[in-house]
Amino acid sequence: MDRFGFWNIRGLNSLNKQKEIKWFLHSNNIGLFGLVETRVKSNNWLKVRNNLCSSWALCTNNSLHKNGRVWLLWDPNCFDVNVVDITSQTIHSFVLSKMTGRKFWFTVVYGFNHSTGRELLWNKLKEYAASCQEAWAVGGDFNNVLNYNERIGSDITSAEIAPFQDCVHWCQLQDIPAIGSFFTWNNKQGVESRVYSRIDRMLVNDEWISKFPESYLKGFMTIVLVLFSLIPWLVELELLSNITTCGL
């Protein structure tokens, strides 16, 4: 089984957080993983990487943003990863699984929290789509809801979701089937002011659905996580001949 995923970790400088991620990767046999909102500066990334998984390869976007918003880590024994493009909101790569021979594009996303910045993200994803002829998965924290039912506690306007919807339609992407919490973030305010939203997701193209029809996204709640504030997400791909659960 090939397993990969992403996690908005909301800061990776804590040793306890590093231990938690290391445990999660090891216990779930993950060989490829995106981390977003790392908040790790350029002079500290090597130390943090070594605490997580010293033998793994790492790509960051620290050269384009001082806080290293996006990381992509992989075990070279499990995956060959060719990083094709890095921006302040994405790391775009072509992946080969050494275990199964599967090939696919994987883009890790951490969208800016303002709409002007996300316009750059939508345009970049359209650029990627034009050259992604094979299976493509786009996962991470988009900082944007996609549909009207993806936030409670605060109204959603058409102006807010239209650019994201246009991008998804133009790129011919769709949500991969998911298991776990529908809402992925909350503002941690009191009950009367609490807002829940779905801003983390994995989108895939038609070629992905054709090649990996039984693949799915699974959300986890680890011991120290509170509500929906920090949820790791994992895609599972299993060989069709060995299906025992919902996988590919």
Rank of each mutant, 00 (worst) to 15 (best):
L121T: 09
C171M: 01
V191A: 15
C246W: 10
G68I: 04
D175P: 02
K98W: 03
V138H: 00
T87S: 10
Q133W: 14
C246N: 14
G68W: 02
R49I: 08
V84Y: 14
S241W: 04
N67T: 15
A129H: 11
F94E: 08
F4E: 05
K103R: 15
T157E: 00
F212P: 13
P76Y: 02
R49M: 14
V145I: 15
A159L: 14
N44G: 06
L96I: 12
S210L: 06
N8M: 02
S63V: 13
Y128R: 05
E207W: 11
E192V: 13
S115M: 10
A137M: 05
F112A: 12
K66P: 13
E119C: 01
N67P: 11
S14H: 03
D80W: 05
S42H: 13
Q172F: 00
M99Y: 11
R102E: 10
L73P: 10
I209V: 15
S93D: 04
F220L: 03
F183M: 12
N50H: 14
S197L: 07
W233P: 11
T244A: 14
F106R: 02
N205P: 09
E214I: 04
C167W: 01
I152K: 15
D2T: 07
H114Q: 10
S115P: 08
R102F: 15
S88Q: 07
N62R: 02
W185R: 10
L96P: 13
V81F: 08
V235A: 01
A130I: 02
S97I: 01
V48I: 15
I30D: 05
